[in-house]
Amino acid sequence: MSQLHTESRFASPDDFYEQLIDAHRDLTTEQSHALNAALVLLLANHIGDLDIVGEALNHARATLQDLPNTPSGATS
């Protein structure tokens, strides 16, 4: 049984969001993507449970189903 928590567990979610936005401030798109990738890897390592990380990846990917199906870098 999974232990993935999808509800907010922050006392102040807005403070987390502000920190996340601040971390990306003044970065290029490439740097922003690299920051996100590094953050994902750091947090996945901190969790240290492949089942939970896998569930989180599946959950995150499922949130993309309503977005346009345009490959990264493609233009319209």
Results as ranks from 00 to 15, higher is better:
Thr29Gly: 04
Ala62Glu: 11
Leu41Met: 08
Leu41His: 07
Ile21Thr: 10
Arg9Gly: 10
Thr63Ala: 13
Thr28Ile: 08
Leu67His: 11
Val40Ala: 10
Ala60Pro: 02
Ser2Gln: 09
Asp49Trp: 03
Asp66Pro: 01
Leu39Phe: 06
Pro68Ser: 03
Leu20Gly: 03
Leu67Ala: 14
Ile52Phe: 02
Ser76Asp: 15
Leu35Val: 01
Thr28Leu: 06
Arg61Val: 12
Ala44Arg: 02
Thr6Asp: 02
Phe10Glu: 10
Thr29Glu: 15
Gln3Glu: 13
Gly48Ser: 12
Gly73Arg: 02
Thr63Lys: 10
Asn45Phe: 13
Asn69Lys: 13
Pro71Arg: 00
Phe16Leu: 11
Asp49Gly: 05
Ala37Pro: 00
Glu18Gln: 08
Arg61Cys: 10
Thr70Trp: 03
Leu41Asp: 15
Val53Ala: 02
Ala62Arg: 10
Thr63Trp: 03
Leu64Ala: 10
Glu18Thr: 14
Leu50Cys: 09
Leu20Trp: 09
Asp49Leu: 09
Leu35Asp: 01
His46Glu: 13
Leu27Tyr: 03
Thr28Trp: 05
Val53Gln: 00
Met1Val: 08
Ile52Glu: 04
Ser2Thr: 14
Thr70Asp: 03
Arg9Ile: 11
Arg25Gln: 12
Gly54Phe: 00
Asn45Leu: 13
Val53Pro: 00
Ser72His: 05
Leu67Asp: 08
His5Glu: 07
Thr63Gly: 05
Glu7Pro: 01
Asn45Gln: 15
Asp26Glu: 08
Tyr17Val: 12
His59Phe: 15
Phe16Met: 07
Ile21Asn: 04
His59Val: 06
Ala60Met: 11
Val53His: 01
Glu7Lys: 09
Leu42Ile: 12
Glu30Trp: 04
Gln3Tyr: 07
Gln19Ile: 02
His5Asp: 04
Thr75Asn: 06
Asn69Tyr: 05
Ile52Thr: 15
Thr28Arg: 03
Ile21Glu: 06
Asp49Thr: 09
Asp51Thr: 10
Gly73His: 01
Val40Gly: 03
Ser8Glu: 07
Ser8Met: 04
Gln19Ser: 08
Leu27Met: 13
Asp22Ile: 06
His5Lys: 12
Ala23Phe: 04
Asp14Glu: 15
Asp14Pro: 02
Arg61Thr: 13
Phe10Arg: 14
Gln3Phe: 09
Arg25Leu: 10
Ser32Phe: 00
His24Ser: 09
